[in-house]
């Protein structure tokens, strides 16, 4: 848990397709179930005096902000109803 400079862990390539996942706040399965809390919800539409509607497409986006913490358990990939998430360790298979 403590911070370590010499951390040798492999870091996966992770992508979230924000075209497929365009209303993340109505689903947020990956945000809630990731044991390592890898994902972050980014608010793209931030307007003064206006509250953003959670149903509005492309107003929010999910981003694998803490991908260095990913263990490759693939919970998110399996849970995503829109198949928007990919996780790849090394040159291995893309899931």
């Amino acid at each position: 848990m403590a911070f370590n400079w010499e951390d040798p862990r492999p870091i996966p390539k992770m992508t979230v397709d924000n075209q497929k996942c365009n209303v993340p706040l109505t689903c947020k399965k990956c945000l809630e179930l990731c044991p390592q809390a890898v994902f972050a919800l980014i608010t793209l539409k931030y307007v003064k005096y206006v509250e953003t509607n959670i149903n509005e497409p492309y107003a929010y986006a999910v981003r694998p902000m803490h991908r260095d913490k990913c263990t490759g358990c693939m919970e998110c990939v399996n849970a995503c109803p829109r198949d928007a998430i990919t996780v790849q360790f090394g040159e291995g298979e893309v899931k």
Binding site: L25, L31, L41, I42
Partner: peptide, 8 residues
């Protein structure tokens, strides 16, 4: 918590 878990 909104950012990390989507909690409103």
């Amino acid at each position: 918590r909104k950012i990390t878990r989507g909690r409103l």
